[in-house]
Design a binder for these strands. Structure first.
Length: 194
DNA sequence: CTATAGATAATCT
DNA sequence: GATTATCTATAGG
């Protein structure tokens, strides 16, 4: 047996398809060394999805996506920013959820200092911004999200809104971006679907 | 509010 | 050699 299994509630929440995990992570609290906030925006990526890094199979970069549920997949984008994903769905290897925005609640002064920004709305409103604010780097690729320095606690999701993902070319129509309705901390507005 | 340029480097073809 | 799950600053309506 694994000497340090995931909490059963967290395990069952994450051992599901990326789309449903992306919804369930909204409202959860994510901290790194006590600094962070409430997840308000996510995107789902699955191995069957042309937009996913895992679409063409395992590589050195995306190895964490094919590892155990509940780990971090951290990668560098455009040569200068970091992005953080939650690995999920142990029935379909290569699934993960990109954390796109947080509502800052803890360590706000530390985040302002790291980001060089005063506006709380802009501290964590974007995947690379949130990594900069929390101090997430490639060193944390593959790390467990339920143990230090990370902390991940599920929360009650408010009303959820879906829309197309941002910044991708393939699979652009798939509405796998999710946000907390009415949140002022989204990276971009997300309209309610009729 | 939208549009665009530039930064900058690993990854993959 | 092309691409990239971004951000910031700047210019224009």
């Amino acid at each position: 047996m694994n000497p340090h299994p995931l909490d059963p509630a967290l395990k069952s929440a994450l051992a599901a398809p990326a789309e449903s995990v992306a919804r369930r992570l909204l409202g959860a609290t994510l901290l790194v060394d006590g600094v962070g906030g409430i997840i308000v925006e996510t995107e789902a990526y699955a191995a069957t999805d042309p937009a996913s890094h895992s679409f063409r199979g395992p590589t050195a970069r995306n190895a964490a996506m094919f590892g155990p549920v509940g780990r971090a997949y951290v990668y560098r984008i455009y040569g200068l920013h970091w992005c953080l994903n939650v690995v999920c769905d142990d029935r379909q290897a290569g699934s993960a959820v990109l954390i796109r925005a947080l509502e800052p609640t803890a360590g706000i002064e530390a985040m302002k200092a790291r980001r060089g920004v005063e506006d709380v709305r802009k501290l964590c409103s974007g995947p690379a911004r949130l990594c900069a604010a929390l101090g997430v780097t490639g060193d944390l690729d593959g790390a467990r999200l339920d143990r230090p320095p990370f902390s991940l606690v599920l929360g009650a999701p408010a009303e959820v809104v879906a829309g197309p993902r941002i910044g991708i070319t393939r699979g652009a129509e798939t509405p796998w971006r999710f946000g907390v309705a009415g949140s002022r901390f989204l990276s971009r507005p997300l309209r309610q679907l009729p």
